[in-house]
Simulated assay, not measured.
Amino acid sequence: MIDQNDSRSLHAAAELFFFTYRAFTSRPDRLLAERGLGRVHHRILYFVGRHPQLAVNALLGILGVSKQALNAPLRQLVEMQLVAVEVAAHDRRVKQLSLTAAGQALEDELTGVQTQHLAAAFAAAGSEAAAGWQQAMQAILDQA
């Protein structure tokens, strides 16, 4: 248990979080770098993969970025034929995003590495610890 009044314990937890995130993202980052892509590209692929025909404006909201910040990486993914853009049938002003077969394969590879990390960690820690981790992560989100 981490003593919430002990700054050393909290700093140690923050360090662990940092190093864990680095380990969690290191292999996907290498795979992305081989293609000239970065972490933002993975986030786009991930959320478009989870929400086929996702509107660009909805993706902006999910990622919490501006149109300018999204434009270049999204354009790159479209040019690489990893993401397809279609006009929505209900409103021609709305652009909807989906993964191509190549985009889905890349997203599966990138996220597969991460889900394997999570599965191994949850198995090692046990279901009670996994539930506690999910509660802690949700509490961080709720405070943000």
Rank of each mutant, 00 (worst) to 15 (best):
L32H: 14
R39S: 11
H117A: 05
L110H: 08
A88F: 05
A102G: 01
N71M: 09
A58E: 14
A102L: 00
L45A: 00
L97H: 01
L82V: 00
H117W: 11
N57A: 06
Q114H: 11
V78R: 05
H41E: 07
Q104A: 07
T111K: 04
V65A: 03
R35I: 09
K67Y: 06
L59E: 04
V87P: 03
V78L: 01
S66Q: 05
F47S: 01
G36R: 10
L74W: 00
A84K: 02
G132W: 00
G61H: 09
D29H: 05
P73C: 04
L45P: 12
G61Y: 12
I44L: 02
T20K: 06
T20H: 06
Y46G: 00
V94R: 14
V78Q: 03
A55P: 15
Q104L: 04
H51T: 13
A124K: 15
P28G: 01
A123R: 15
A105N: 13
A130R: 04
A89T: 14
R39E: 04
V40D: 06
V48W: 00
D91N: 15
I44F: 01
D29W: 05
L31A: 07
A105M: 09
A131E: 10
T111Y: 08
R39Y: 04
N71Q: 11
F47Q: 02
L82Q: 01
T20R: 07
K67M: 03
L118P: 09
F24S: 08
